[in-house]
Computed example of a mutant assay.
Amino acid sequence: MSETSRIAGSADADLIARSRHEPEAFAELFHRHAPALKRYVTRRLGADAAEDVVAETFLAAFRRRGRYDTARPDARPWLYGIATNLIGRHVRTEVRALRALQRTGVDPVTAPFTERSDERVSAVAARRALAAALAGLPAGHRDALLLVAWGGLSYEETAQALGVRIGTVRSRISRARARLRRELGGVNPTSTVSEEPVGG
């Protein structure tokens, strides 16, 4: 087995532990998670800020790798937690991006891939209403909801990312969804995100 394939097959925790004495091993963590993290940050802040926030996230992670809990094999919650904290510094940018999405209906992640104009018209209207409702959520509720809906994290991973208890995540997401449903006339825009069981 080549060195490259051995690194590529390693768990995130193993890569981080190895990077403590072989810093170049950390590059694989970037290659694994940067694209998804960039999509998440782009949806939160827009394309202009996403590159910087993702770079800052991995720089902070690299600097903190000595404190990473290697009992956690998946580094996604840790990385998304760092990114969410950095996004918190850009709250005004996020709210502006959501307001722009509300006005234009253009999602910076999906816009380049949308082809059919009839689908685009109805999607634009829905995105505008959703963006306005998201902009009105408290930051903690928005963070929890979007880590699950856009970041693809589980409730447990979201709790790890935010440094809160899983019950807090459930409560924030429940309140965020209830508020979104009220503001969107009973429609639940996050219904495609599966509800986690009470024990999960």
Score class of each variant (00 low, 15 high):
42 T>C: 05
45 L>P: 00
54 V>C: 04
60 A>K: 14
63 R>I: 07
69 D>I: 01
71 A>V: 03
71 A>Q: 13
72 R>K: 15
75 A>R: 03
78 W>A: 01
79 L>S: 08
85 N>K: 11
87 I>R: 03
90 H>M: 14
92 R>Q: 12
94 E>S: 14
94 E>A: 14
99 R>L: 14
99 R>Y: 00
103 R>A: 14
105 G>K: 07
105 G>Y: 00
109 V>G: 00
109 V>K: 00
110 T>E: 13
110 T>V: 10
113 F>S: 13
114 T>F: 03
119 E>M: 09
122 S>Q: 12
125 A>H: 06
126 A>P: 04
129 A>H: 07
129 A>V: 08
132 A>S: 12
133 A>C: 10
135 A>C: 09
139 A>C: 06
140 G>F: 05
140 G>P: 06
141 H>F: 07
142 R>N: 03
143 D>R: 12
147 L>A: 05
148 V>A: 14
149 A>N: 01
149 A>H: 10
149 A>I: 05
152 G>M: 03
154 S>P: 11
154 S>V: 04
157 E>K: 04
159 A>Q: 06
160 Q>L: 10
162 L>I: 03
162 L>R: 14
164 V>A: 06
168 T>A: 15
168 T>G: 10
171 S>Y: 14
172 R>G: 00
177 R>D: 05
177 R>P: 05
179 R>I: 07
180 L>R: 04
183 E>Q: 14
183 E>L: 10
